[in-house]
Design a protein around this nucleic acid. Structure first.
Lengths: 174, 174
DNA sequence: CTTTTTGAATAATGTAACAATATTCAAATG
DNA sequence: CATTTGAATATTGTTACATTATTCAAAAAG
């Protein structure tokens, strides 16, 4: 055990890049002190990510320690792509039952998506919000319900008729 | 408009303390770059809370500046009551179509809820996950599909049959 | 006298810089 | 050949600092 030098320059020595806790670079960001704890929890351990299981599972009960069969999911980022352009509307009635939209369901609406033929959209008509499927050709646009008991209506952007956005997800409570 | 000095020392001059955006001091914290956006949004204001609109709306388009008719909503806290006991399962097939569960839907499952008569539950049978409605009397338990094309099955907790939890929400993508 | 303009004073803020720590590898040692 | 050691380099929490934002009273204008 001599106190001597242990070699000079060596190629490939030192801690390799990308070996940090996150697998990506970090950067300092100013956080109000009262929120530091929560931010750190969110950042260090995937706080908002919950396990997503597939159809077949190993024996026994699921456990948070499992390596989830299909990974983890954060509802907010999964359902909301453009937070600044997203809002919620509660559905009423059963005119869109065929699209899986039931009375009382919560609709996730994205205003940044283009409303094209076949999309389910939110439209305000005379201050009332409605959910319908948009159908359009080069000549005309319709709003069609997904329920044979209701009629289609002609659609045209006017003073009292506005297209609010495209429905991306339907949340149904049991 | 002379170019002269404008007084010397003055008591009470300068920006007062506590006039920052948060009303409290801040401190730099290292954040992985991919999460900086999310953290900033969370920290600056009600990040995960997006507007929830009612059925009738004032004229014009909605704006984030609006005082939302029905307030704001955070999907995570709205859909997940008990984070440590919650997980997701993707539904397969149409045996529960009557309960609003379609093929490919994402199910929010809470293990901490008691599975009582009438609840929609997740059960593993021989390593396969199934969604069914639980019916039980003092004598017996059944798992019933919500589709007349499928049969009910007898239910009993066994080695290869386990009740995983109660389905609280169904997320349907369009 | 009242209103408007100005810049000194001070806090807040984003980011660079730094010291301390963690990690890896090959040379030195046994 | 296995183990120990320390040079080399990345990571990390925090400090430092230059820049920006904000406020107020003196000075200027009306």
């Amino acid at each position: 055990m001599e106190m001597e030098k242990h070699g000079g320059k060596r190629m490939g020595a030192g801690r390799p890049k990308g070996t940090n806790h996150y697998g990506e670079p970090t950067q300092p960001v100013r956080i109000p002190i009262s929120k530091i704890d929560r931010v750190l929890r969110f950042v260090r351990e995937r706080e908002d990510e919950l396990p997503l299981y597939g159809h077949s599972v190993p024996a026994g009960f699921p456990s948070p320690a499992d390596d989830y069969a299909e990974g983890a999911l954060d509802l907010n980022s999964h359902l909301v792509r453009e937070p600044t352009a997203t809002f919620f509307v509660r559905a009423r009635g059963d005119s869109m039952i065929g699209a899986g939209i039931h009375d009382g369901d919560l609709l996730v609406v994205d205003r940044s998506l283009e409303a094209s033929d076949g999309k389910v959209v939110i439209v305000s008509i005379n201050g009332e919000l409605t959910v319908k499927r948009l159908r359009q050709t080069k000549q005309k646009s319709w709003l069609t319900p997904e329920n044979p008991d209701y009629p289609s209506i002609n659609f045209q952007e006017q003073d009292d008729t506005h297209l609010w956005g495209v429905v991306t997800n339907v949340i149904h409570s049991l």
